[in-house]
Amino acid sequence: MSPPAESAPLSGRQPKAVRNALAVLEEVIAAGPGVTAKEISAALKLPPATTYRLLNLLVAEGYLVRLPDLRGFALGRRAGRLTVPAAARPPAAARAVVERLRQRVRWGVHLASYHSGRLTMIDTDPDHPPTGAAVLARFPHASALGKLLLADQPDWRAAVPELRRFTVHTVTDPARLAREVADVAQRQLARQCGELHPDRGCLAVPIHDVASGALVAGLAVSGPAERVAGPNVELVELLTEHAGQLAPLLA
């Protein structure tokens, strides 16, 4: 008598199929609603037939849905069960500190949380919207806030599923990125100059729990690449000052 289906060992192809299905889900999250099967196939370098088969399976199981015009896909209701609960909105006192910094600089000011080891934007500048939250969370190597998170990891490579290149300035060489992450850890300061968008840059400093010293958040200024991410002592001092004010409020 053959063993029950649930106890049968995995075949050689099954683990790869599972990885591909998860990669498809990740791509839909990163690309956003409306991404097409063709775009997913190209991004993941999967054969079109394999991509369509995985998409149909994920739709049937409720993890994805087809948009009404049938031209693209979005996350389904079951996908919500796979996510970590969003970080809580910062308290009013913390939001007030962030707003004071916005009044002192001409560019965008953003606050991110590292709740559960994941980058989550919790206070973004409405006048200077940042890159999409899903992209920032999935590709931490390409943002200043993401590099703060990598610098806090025992092994930053485990937090980077893919070193995707967004522009010619995106650091995708593992050795170079390792040096940069080590520098961020030493200086407690991260820079990103044209790595997500050619003309945009970002400067970020960490916020640590005052009692445990754990990394809890990051404060960033984004704007023209050379003006923000280049040498800017006054801007670094402003960021550090306000990060210090935020630390006891975000514990």
Results as ranks from 00 to 15, higher is better:
Pro224Asp: 11
Ala74Asn: 03
Val210Pro: 12
Leu101Phe: 02
Leu219Gly: 01
Ala74Ile: 06
Gly12Met: 11
Gln153Asp: 09
Ala42Leu: 14
Arg138Gln: 13
Arg100Asp: 12
Arg200Lys: 03
Ile207Phe: 09
Trp156Gln: 08
Arg179Asn: 15
Arg66Gly: 01
Ala158Glu: 12
Met121Thr: 05
Pro85Asp: 01
Leu46Ala: 05
Asp125Ser: 07
Ala31Leu: 10
His242Phe: 14
Arg81Phe: 07
Leu148Gln: 10
Gln186Lys: 06
His208Thr: 08
Arg104Thr: 07
Gln103Ser: 13
Ala5His: 05
Leu189Pro: 04
Val210Gly: 07
Ala185Ile: 05
Pro4Asp: 03
Arg102Phe: 13
Ala74Glu: 09
Ala60Asp: 15
Ala23Glu: 06
Ser222Val: 02
Leu250Arg: 02
Ser212Glu: 09
Asp125Arg: 00
Pro198Leu: 08
Asn20Tyr: 03
Ala142Phe: 01
Ala96Lys: 13
Cys193Val: 00
Tyr114Pro: 01
Glu99Ser: 14
Ser2Cys: 09
Ala251Pro: 00
Ala137Phe: 06
Gln153Lys: 11
Leu145Glu: 09
Glu237Lys: 11
Leu177Tyr: 03
Arg227Gly: 04
Val97Tyr: 00
Leu10Glu: 07
Pro4Tyr: 03
Ala92Met: 08
Ala8Ile: 07
Leu22Gln: 09
Leu239Tyr: 02
Ser113Asp: 06
Leu44Ser: 12
Arg176Ala: 15
